[in-house]
């Protein structure tokens, strides 16, 4: 029948769409998991590495709520270490000095939507670059 070729064509298009991720990555070359630059002066983040990997955004939001709404400026961890609640002065200033080399690495690898932290907070590195 003359419609059969049409069905085969549609089937081929569908198969091409379904297998697109396989062919795309063959063509693009697989980007591997990014190597993060860890700070030299610290070995332990605010919480455990596993917690930070999965839930750092929750911690940052909790910090924002504590600081902005409740005026709590110190965060005490489970093992009794105290941190000044501040993305710019604690996280960025003390350890992760480069947003591009730290935050953006995983975010762009996993296609995470650009977090709105940076609507208010300053990326110090970028500030330095624009000052020059």
């Amino acid at each position: 029948m003359r419609d059969r070729s049409l069905i085969y064509l549609g089937l081929l298009v569908f198969l091409a769409v379904v297998t697109f991720p396989f062919t795309y990555n063959l063509a693009a070359g697989s980007g591997s998991m990014p190597d993060l630059e860890y700070p030299e002066n610290e070995t332990q983040c605010v919480e455990s590495k596993e917690f930070m990997r999965s839930s750092h955004m929750q911690l940052l939001i909790d910090w924002r709520e504590a600081m902005v709404r409740e005026n709590v400026r110190t965060y005490t961890t489970g093992d009794d270490r105290n941190f000044n609640i501040s993305l710019t002065n604690t996280c960025l200033a003390q350890c992760h000095t480069s947003k591009a080399d730290f935050c953006d690495q995983c975010h762009s690898y996993a296609g995470v939507q650009e977090p709105y932290c940076w609507d208010c907070h300053i990326d110090p590195e970028q500030l330095e670059r624009s000052a020059r």
Binding site: L26, S30, G31, S32, M33, R53, S54, Q58, Y109, A110
Partner: peptide, 16 residues
Amino acid sequence: KTDISGIKELAMGLVT
């Protein structure tokens, strides 16, 4: 929540 870059690693491993 889980480590999302780990999941991407798994998914990328599957498709490559």
